[in-house]
Every structure is written in structure tokens, then in C-alpha cells.
Design a protein around this nucleic acid. Structure first.
Length: 417
DNA sequence: AACTCGGGGAG
DNA sequence: CTCCCAGAGTT
């Protein structure tokens, strides 16, 4: 390709000049950038710690900054280096990940740490292709680490960047439009190359995301304080709130998890590991029967009684109030029964089922609802419905259950009516 | 190309 | 209620 063609391509950002955008973003980012824990700079090298970037980027995939802030520090304390992470057990890693969701990321990060130790001497590689070859790193994450931690001329596109670029370019497509996304990546590359020439590729890439997170938000863009307000085509057209158009969302499927929390007199509880695929794969739980409708007490007793060939027919069970836990693809109704046995020898432990103390259970990888069931006591909520709403659940056999929504911190939001 | 994988916050 | 979020891997 000739030089003129290359030059022409550099100017296809709908007539916008990359240098202008680079300058505006860099200046703005320098003024407002947040102090996030993974943005620390090593005073010795003047560089960001690439391992911090690796961990934070994996955590940030499809996850908001505020959510990652709650987990990042603790994770780094437990696994301060790639080598420390590589030698940890998978359960330790999953435990540190509990509550973040998309648990596959934790396993992939763990696997990436092992590759980094075995093939890269324990140092996160700086080469884009080497980064892409690591488990769990796709085009976005590899580009983020290469550009932000190593200052390489690599582009990056997440949903923030995609929204900013589509709006600035005035491209009216859905957020998951394939051709639109390809175009966005081209523009991101133009920007990254231009920024790299000026030595500010890290600032521009991170600044683009910061802009999308703080100013060019999806619901209510704050155009008046936007550094790109004068060049933004969506704003000129008054379409900044319509671009990008919403993606189609799949309906959630109702399912029911019937759970038996079986405890011993000395305070230990029976737990098992979930199957290796599907929802909450490989995480720990109290014995659970999953189905379209709630399992009966008889079925639940049978599920556990079979373990040690012991009948639990005489065991008295208490039933919690049902609650619904929502994930992206499911409404999971939890029906929880609790019972106590005199001695754990009533049920033989096995490779897959074991009685553990509460402190030990707290160290297992578990889903958020299971953590509540096992560690926060019962879900009785009578007289304490603040912040919760009810909805009719379509699952058979479940009349109505509270949807667990926001976990209020003490004193932050008490009912005041 | 479509689906799957969590969880919580905000409007 | 709905939509969104520093995406990637599998089918």
C-alpha cells in the first residue's frame, strides 16, 4: 500500500484529526483521572506494575470499577505476584474471587499466571501476541496491558471506548453491531498510533475509558464538561443519548434450587462441590436439587441420605422464606431447608461431600447467594423489606418470593416511612 | 454467529 | 421493572 493510502486511512475518523483528539483526551485525563489502586507507579522504574494491570483487567471484564475496588486489594494481598498466584490452589483463587461473578475468569487468570511463570520467567510479557496467547486475554485485555503497562502502540476497545467513539463519529448503530465494532477498532488503532507517537498512548487509552465511565455515560452523558464536546457528531445531531442503540437482551429463565443446610451440633455444615460446567461451575454449595419446580422434603432428604445410606426421615427441617437471586440469564428461586443432626457420623463423608466449620466454609469459592445461605444465617426477612421488591415468579410451586437486590450497609439506608 | 458465564448498581 | 458494565471462551 502506498503512502497516500495510508495517510488517507488515518483521516477516515469521519474527518476528525487524531492529533486533536489525542491532545484533548490527554489533557482532560490528566486533570480528572481517578486514583485507582492498580494505577500505582513503581518509583524505581516509573512504570505501572504489569501484574497489577493483569489482575485488574481480568477483574474488570464486564464488571464495573466500583465492584472491583471491593476485591482488588484483598486479592493482591493474598497473591502479590504472578509466582504467588501460580502456586496457589484453585480453591484459594476462587475464594478470593467470590462475589465477583464470571468465575471462569478466576481460573483463566490462575492459568495465565502459571504460563507466565513457566514461559516468561514470572514476568508479564509486553508483546501483544504473547499477551493474546495467555488464557483469558482477548484483544481488549492484551491491548490494555500492552498499551497501559508497557506503552506500546496497541488499541483497546471496551464498551466505554466503543460508546465514546461511536458518539464522536456519529455512527448510529447498536452496541453489538459487528460492522460498527470493527470500525470502532480501526479508529481506536488510529488513535493509539497517533498517541504513541506523542508518547501518551497509555493516557489516551485509559483516558478514553475514563471518559466513557465518568462523562460519556450511557444513560446521561455530561456533554457540557466533555473534552470532545466541540467535535462530537452525536452531540451536534442531538443523538448522544441514542447512540449506541441498546442490544437485544435475552429473557431470564426461572429455575428453582432447593437446598439442604445440614449442620452438626458442633457447628459444622455439609458442603459439596458443584459440577464442572454451567452456572457457578466448580464452586461449593450446600447439597442442592435443581429443577423447574421445588424439590420435596422427601427428595431432599433422599439426596443427602443416600450419601451414607442413612435415612433422614426423622430429621426435623426448618424452611426459610424463599428468595429469588437474579443472574443475567436466570431467575433462581432458592428454597432453603435447615436441619441439625446430633453427630456427623450419621452421614458418611465422601470425596465429594464433607462437613466443614464455618470459618473453613468462608474460605471456599462460592456463589453470592450460597455465601448468604451458609454464612449470613437464615433469609427470614419478615418486617424488614426495605430495599426489596416482590415479584411473581413463574416457576411452578413457588407462589411469590422476594427478590434479593441490594445489600444495604448498616445505617446507610434504613427504612424511614 | 449465537450462546454462556455473575452480580450489583442505577434510573 | 430494564439496561448496563475495562469480554472471553465455547458450541
Amino acid at each position: 500500500m502506498g503512502r497516500s493510502e495510508k495517510t488517507a486511512k488515518r483521516e477516515t475518523f469521519e474527518g476528525l484529526r487524531p492529533r486533536v483528539l489525542v491532545g484533548a483526551i490527554t489533557k482532560w485525563f490528566g486533570q480528572v483521572r481517578r486514583d485507582l489502586p492498580w494505577r500505582v507507579v513503581d518509583p524505581a522504574t516509573g512504570m505501572r506494575n504489569p501484574y497489577f494491570s493483569l489482575v485488574s483487567e481480568l477483574m474488570l471484564q464486564q464488571t464495573q470499577v466500583s465492584r472491583v475496588l471491593e476485591k482488588f486489594g484483598q486479592f493482591m494481598e493474598r497473591f502479590p505476584t504472578a509466582a504467588a498466584l501460580a502456586v496457589a490452589s484453585e480453591d484459594e483463587v476462587l475464594s478470593a474471587w467470590t462475589g465477583l461473578g464470571y468465575y471462569r475468569r478466576a481460573r483463566l487468570l490462575h492459568a495465565a499466571a502459571k504460563v507466565i511463570v513457566e514461559r516468561h520467567g514470572g514476568q508479564v510479557p509486553s508483546d501483544l501476541d504473547a499477551l493474546m496467547a495467555l488464557p483469558g486475554l482477548g484483544r481488549y485485555t492484551a491491548g490494555a496491558i500492552a498499551s497501559i503497562a508497557f506503552g506500546k502502540a496497541a488499541p483497546l476497545v471496551d464498551t466505554n471506548v466503543s460508546r465514546v467513539i461511536l458518539r464522536v463519529g456519529g455512527v448510529d448503530v447498536a452496541g453489538d453491531d459487528k460492522a460498527g465494532l470493527a470500525w470502532v477498532w480501526e479508529q481506536a488503532e488510529v488513535l493509539a498510533v497517533a498517541a504513541h507517537k506523542q508518547g501518551v498512548v497509555a493516557e489516551v487509552n485509559e483516558g478514553l475509558m475514563e471518559l466513557g465511565a465518568l462523562v460519556c455515560t450511557s444513560d446521561n452523558p455530561a456533554c457540557l464538561v466533555c473534552p470532545l464536546r466541540d467535535v462530537c457528531k452525536a452531540r451536534a445531531m442531538g443523538k448522544q443519548r441514542e447512540i449506541p442503540r441498546a442490544k437485544k437482551q435475552a429473557a431470564r429463565k426461572p429455575v428453582v434450587h432447593t437446598v439442604l443446610v445440614l449442620s452438626t451440633a458442633d457447628g459444622r455444615t455439609l458442603v459439596e462441590r458443584r459440577a464442572g460446567t454451567g452456572l457457578w461451575a466448580g464452586l461449593w454449595q450446600a447439597p442442592t436439587i435443581e429443577g423447574a419446580k421445588p424439590a420435596s422434603e422427601v427428595e431432599l432428604r433422599g439426596r443427602v441420605g443416600v450419601l451414607g445410606k442413612v435415612r433422614l426421615g426423622t430429621l426435623r427441617l426448618r424452611q426459610d422464606e424463599d428468595f429469588v437471586f437474579q443472574t443475567t440469564h436466570r431467575d433462581v428461586t432458592f428454597r432453603v431447608y435447615r436441619g441439625e443432626i446430633a453427630a456427623e457420623k450419621m452421614i458418611a463423608e465422601s470425596a465429594t461431600h464433607t462437613f466443614l466449620a464455618k470459618e473453613t466454609i468462608a474460605e471456599l469459592g462460592m456463589s453470592s447467594p450460597m455465601r448468604r445461605i451458609l454464612l449470613d444465617g437464615t433469609q427470614q426477612t419478615s418486617g424488614d423489606a426495605a430495599g426489596q421488591e416482590s415479584q411473581r415468579v413463574k416457576a411452578d410451586g413457588v407462589k411469590r418470593a422476594k427478590v434479593i437486590q441490594t445489600k444495604r450497609k448498616n445505617g446507610v439506608k434504613q427504612r424511614d416511612d
